[in-house]
Design a binder for these strands. Structure first.
Length: 329
DNA sequence: TTCCCGGCCG
DNA sequence: CGGCCGGGAA
């Protein structure tokens, strides 16, 4: 076990992504918020994308829990616009409010208390405790899970088994580097199509290499469904554009262009089409435009359409952003 | 162009 | 266990 841990740390020392911003904060809890923000963003999003447009701008606008807790929902969603899974940031604001009320304006440091907060599950609670507070916690996201499955030779483990494995394998003397190393190994080398030659456990220490690493911890296959939709860009004489606020779970709180068939029989002109996708849906979106007079706009307002000037738009889902881009071409 | 990737919640 | 998002790799 000790030998495996040492191999891992040695590899991380040479090849780990040690320059990532959130790996170089203080580990005494004083920058736990910055770590927390990174972990939430990284939950379903690639490192490169988080870094490119979102992480630092979000911290600049909401530098601490207090600022996040008092912001308007619209400001919060705008800062997250385009990143997807918008309930993540709505939960972050709920968490910020709870922390202001119950934890003296700070994130709690224990895994248990962290996990009570909205949007924080087993993985994120462990990661924030370890990476933000320097605690010796073990946890597993799907990268770590894949690494452990292969290393210890468990083809189809239950969550409980993986958690026990992570705990047993944890290097309590270097938990920060140990966990970051596992994350990097899973993201860079031990991928679904692994580069075993480059792995610190190759060729003798990894159980899976004796058979076939691809047989371990296979993802469930997603059945995609195709969906055709028709969006309509309705504009007023003054140039304002009509949107509808989403109230369901999909795009909750964001605005989208209205669907053409929700507008009744209005005159609309075909503009173009594009492809988009979310969850299991592959969407072909046809886009129409319609210029309204003020009388017609009253009717649309009664259907829940809200008009915004193009220089002061609400938070808009990428689906509708793509449609609006067609007008610029 | 198609396929793949991911943590939390109800 | 199915729903949630979008980009980028293949």
């Amino acid at each position: 076990m000790k030998k495996l841990q040492d191999s891992l740390l040695l590899w991380y020392e040479k090849h780990g992504r040690k320059d990532l911003i959130w790996r170089n904060f203080k580990r005494d809890g004083s920058q736990a918020y910055e770590v927390y923000v990174s972990e939430i963003m990284l939950q379903q999003t690639q490192v490169s994308r988080v870094l490119k447009d979102f992480y630092l701008p979000f911290l600049a606008r909401f530098p601490n829990l207090k600022e996040l807790s008092i912001a308007s929902e619209s400001d919060v969603l705008k800062q997250w616009q385009g990143l997807g899974y918008y309930s993540r940031v709505r939960n972050m604001q709920k968490t910020a409010i709870i922390c202001m009320q119950k934890h003296g304006g700070n994130l709690p440091s224990s895994v248990y208390e962290l996990q009570q907060l909205p949007g924080i599950g087993a993985y994120t609670a462990g990661a924030v405790a370890c990476f933000g507070f320097g605690k010796s916690a073990s946890f597993a996201d799907s990268n770590i899970r894949r690494v452990l499955c292969r290393l210890f030779g468990l083809p189809h483990p239950k969550n409980r088994e993986i958690e026990n494995l992570a705990k047993m394998f944890l290097n309590t003397k270097s938990s920060f580097d140990h966990n970051q190393a596992l994350l990097d190994l899973g993201a860079l080398i031990c991928t679904s199509n692994p580069s075993c030659i480059l792995c610190p456990f190759f060729p003798t220490q990894c159980a899976a290499i004796k058979t076939n690493p691809r047989d371990f911890d296979q993802r469930k296959k997603i059945i995609y469904k195709e969906l055709n939709i028709a969006l309509c860009i309705v504009s007023l004489p003054n140039g304002e554009i009509g949107f509808i606020r989403e109230s369901g779970k999909l795009y909750a709180g964001l605005y989208n262009l209205p669907k053409l068939d929700s507008l009744g029989f209005i005159k609309a002109q075909y503009l173009g089409s594009f492809k988009h996708s979310y969850t299991k849906y592959k969407i072909l979106a046809n886009v129409y435009t319609s210029k309204l007079d003020y009388k017609n706009s009253q009717k649309l307002a009664s259907l829940g359409i809200v008009f915004f000037p193009s220089d002061n738009l609400p938070p808009i889902a990428n689906l509708s952003k793509k449609a609006l881009k067609l007008t610029a071409l």
